[in-house]
Design a binder for these strands. Structure first.
Lengths: 323, 323
DNA sequence: CTGTTAGCGCATTCAA
DNA sequence: TTGAATGCGCTAACAG
């Protein structure tokens, strides 16, 4: 049987379509008509067509999330929380894996103008500055565009500071930073820079390995670096993956962690609710970032003015790679 | 400036709206008008409203993916591939974390009738049989409903068989299965059953720990089980997470893996493209399952008849927990 | 409180 | 080949 429309309901109930519409939208109607409409809806299995509603209201109750790949614990944890908060606001989520391709990112950004979604939350490292038009409800994560573009980030400068303090406190003497960076700048670069500054302020020995992405033979490069600098005993890695690679490299070189060398990563994703932290890490407030991003994008979609820059706090979590 | 509509374009180009519509949809128009329309579209930054199009065509080019939580490597890998294949077909993806709540699953299933999406792919273990109405474009993963409901699954019976063979071949003597199951049946239960059968067919010693979900103090239960059965030297765990917990439990009991005890998990998820497999595992063909599911759901959405049951092959991957 | 009507932006007839 | 008209299903304004 074909899908019932409001007109069918109105006919069956013996009322006008307007009344059915009001019923649907919760406007008060007389008790007797309420009954009739309610019954007609039930017998016809009527479900309102959201496309038609959207055409009138030009609201979709949908937000698109653009990220490099959902197949990565940090992003999937973030996406989980984004969807959760959107859902609490009766919003749906479009998911976009950009794989770093700006064309796909742009395609999704266009969806706002296509009236397919009301706003965008994006974690992106590609060159899309000129696609972010002025009134676009767009929230950027961990990357600054201009003061007009809303963004939320963790306090990446504090990350380096905390990493240094934790390593120094547990006896680190020769510090190193290991990481990589993209040509397009984003705030994660601050992690290494602030770490370096903190070390140098104390005049402690410092080495660094900073690779340009895309990185090949990551672990081999790390091993070569560690061999060339055998005194290193306190390493800060740009993220937890890198930390795992460093851990693996050290093991292969016969060093003990954390006895000989300590490692701190960054992100602090849990992999799943019940798993322990393997590497010590500076934890990003992923859930808080998601909440903040959702609030901002919904406010922007509603045309509200908001504070466009949000820095969230980070914290040190001891795992098994520091003493 | 307000968004331009087809009417605006038509006015500016000095043609009728029908012509603009044809232009957009690639129907041939005269060269001279083609130019005029093309220009008008450019100067007005015209982008067709997909909501209005959807209202006419009742197609959304969107599919919803329902899963327990994207915050889990297996599901996020699956979602990654689903989005990829949908994208290749110009389709968008709605993501739904059900967290095991049937209400939320039902809410998304309704979206087909609401004309918000054209079909559903679902990994679900809750009681929603009676919501899967007949013509619904619905594809189930790893769970059988009825012969009328399309589903794709990996060959879970072969999983247990392969696990046994791999463990036996590398010297396992006393076998054990460790896992948990939900009240709602799904095909993953076949893994343990087929493993048990394979072991018993060879008359080898067998023990099992099968917990009812939700499981509390998982690792403690595992430790108690292992203490009570100290001869166990070859363990098959229902999935890779469970395998990690088993690994951790064994370490805490002072056993070496894989020297003293071998472990095989199941799923074969990696944290991301570039990471290695940690535990030895029976790998599910995640990408192939995603591809198959997408093809099926798009075919169903297009009203085509298809083969409703697809079983995909699994394979053994050696990690660091077998010899 | 309720029925009627006019669009929302577009695709698709039907004439011309 | 094209312009004008009709309607997709719904909401909101208006009149009763």
């Amino acid at each position: 049987m074909k899908k019932a429309t409001m007109k069918d309901v109105a006919n069956l109930a013996g009322v006008g379509v307007g009344t059915v519409s009001r019923f649907i939208n919760g406007t008060k109607v007389k008790d007797s008509t309420y009954q009739k409409v309610s019954e007609a809806i039930k017998t016809l299995d009527f479900i309102p067509d959201e496309t038609a509603r959207g055409l009138k209201s030009s609201m979709t109750n949908t937000v698109a999330l653009i990220l490099p790949t959902i197949w990565h614990p940090f992003f999937s944890e973030f996406a989980y929380h984004v969807e959760k908060f959107l859902s609490q606001n009766k919003y749906k989520l479009y998911l976009c894996n950009s794989d770093g391709q700006s064309e796909k990112e742009i395609e999704y950004i266009k969806m706002v103008d296509q009236n397919r979604c009301d706003g965008i939350i994006a974690i992106t490292y590609t060159d899309i500055e000129n696609c972010i038009s002025d009134g676009l409800p767009f929230v950027s994560i961990d990357r600054f565009f201009t003061h007009d573009v809303a963004y939320v980030a963790s306090d990446n400068r504090k990350v380096g500071q905390l990493a240094y303090e934790a390593l120094a406190q547990s006896g680190g003497r020769h510090f190193a930073y290991i990481g990589s960076h993209n040509e397009i700048k984003n705030r994660t670069m601050d992690r290494g820079e602030s770490f370096e500054e903190a070390v140098k302020k104390e005049n402690a020995p410092f080495s660094k390995l900073d690779m340009l992405e895309p990185v090949y033979a990551n672990k081999e490069q790390i091993k070569a670096f560690l061999k060339a600098n055998p005194d290193i005993d306190a390493i800060f890695a740009i993220n937890d993956y890198e930390a795992l690679d460093v851990l693996s490299a050290l093991n292969e070189l016969g060093k003990n962690v954390p006895e000989d060398v300590q490692i701190i990563g960054c992100d602090g994703m849990k992999m799943s609710v019940e798993r322990d932290y393997i590497v010590s890490t500076i934890k990003q407030p992923i859930e808080a970032m998601a909440k903040c991003a959702v609030e901002m994008v919904l406010a922007l979609a509603a045309g509200k003015e908001i504070c466009k820059e949000q820095l969230l706090d980070v914290s040190y979590i001891k795992g098994r790679t520091t003493r």
